[in-house]
Design a protein around this nucleic acid. Structure first.
Lengths: 204, 204
DNA sequence: GTCTATACGTTGATAGAC
DNA sequence: GTCTATCAACGTATAGAC
């Protein structure tokens, strides 16, 4: 049984990581101050350093959490054998991630924009392996005439970009929508449209 | 005829804006320091302030330049009457922009990620008008059965995201390509693939 | 117009009382 | 483990010599 202090530590670390993800997403690594994170988490600034030692370390841990979630949602691709079902499920899962975890997506985008200094290794190993495998699966579908012949990499990048756009460029979309965010119902329809475009683009 | 000093001013301002675009793209607004910009432009730090007064003002001017280029490339959409030609030209033009001006695209993406504090007004007015007009054009094509019935907005967002991805996520693509950037020839092929996917997605 | 030296504010991090 | 007070480093901006 966990003692009191351990429990407090867990709760506070979670609070801080959530707050940090929010602040890093909104201001970037440099623009995010430990004071902003402390206010967002409703915890004193010194506690941020007590729990995470440095801002850089906190950022690392935020990214680690995002990577682990990213890999989870990547599994949606493999739950189905047929391209139509697999791609639908994957796109829907990516769109849900953008809807539910926009800050995570933005932190990720920010890290990429600025040269991926922290997650380079993950990209070169885990993600590259995942991508290579998925390219093979797609190539298999193409070879057995289940979808049209396209460059699988270009196709996957299209799925990533179009789905992540709904998180990363949320602000642009809202401003172009007369300042109104999409309702859940609207977002559901947008998701269906995205699925349709993606499937149609490869003849499904 | 311009005198010597005016010429020097023009040349230096251009140098600084180019350097600033590069540095803002790589480090974000906060992460970009006037010292980095001064080194990148090979001009003393004090001159940055002499020409642009504040870092914020310099950032404004960098964004203004990007907006103006953005509107130029937007015209590619209107050079053709038929959807196939218009969309092809537009996608190619967006892909070229990502290839030739990756830093501009990244500064833009960064501004969006962090809530578009500077360009909100442009988005709500100029860009919103442009978008509304293009939505009408696309709806016209749909109504006259020249392309399949899709949500024009979702479709345009797809074009934006997939083309801009090649600039903003350049680093991710390079790392997933065994550390090698795309050659001009490879990029040309990728562009053709993107055009094909976009056209096919709406039945063209 | 150019550039060195510096003032001032901000921020990451810690010491030390509780 | 919590939190206030404070330091040291950095970065923007400017003053003033050339």
């Amino acid at each position: 049984m966990k003692d009191q202090k351990e429990l407090v530590r867990e709760i506070n670390e979670r609070k801080i990581i959530e707050a940090a993800e929010h602040v890093f997403a909104c201001y970037g690594f440099k623009g995010a101050t430990t004071e902003k994170i402390s206010k967002q988490s409703a915890l004193p600034k010194a506690n941020i350093h007590y729990y995470f030692k440095t801002k850089a370390n906190l950022y690392h841990q935020v990214l680690a959490g995002i990577l682990s979630e990213w890999m989870d949602s990547a599994q949606a691709f493999d739950n189905q054998e047929e391209p139509r079902q697999a791609l639908t499920q994957y796109v829907v899962s990516k769109m849900e991630f953008s809807r539910l975890r926009p800050y995570a997506s933005k932190v990720w985008a920010n890290e990429m924009l600025h040269g991926a200094p922290i997650v380079s290794e993950f990209l070169e190993t885990t993600l590259k392996n995942w991508l290579d495998d998925r390219v093979e699966v797609i190539q298999g579908w193409i070879d057995s005439d289940k979808m049209s012949a396209v460059d699988p990499i270009v196709f996957i990048y299209m799925i990533w970009s179009v789905t992540q756009h709904y998180a990363d460029f949320e602000r642009q979309m809202t401003l172009l929508n007369s300042g109104k965010s999409f309702t859940d119902e609207e977002y559901k329809i947008k998701t269906e449209q995205v699925v349709k475009l993606v499937l149609t683009s490869v003849g499904l």
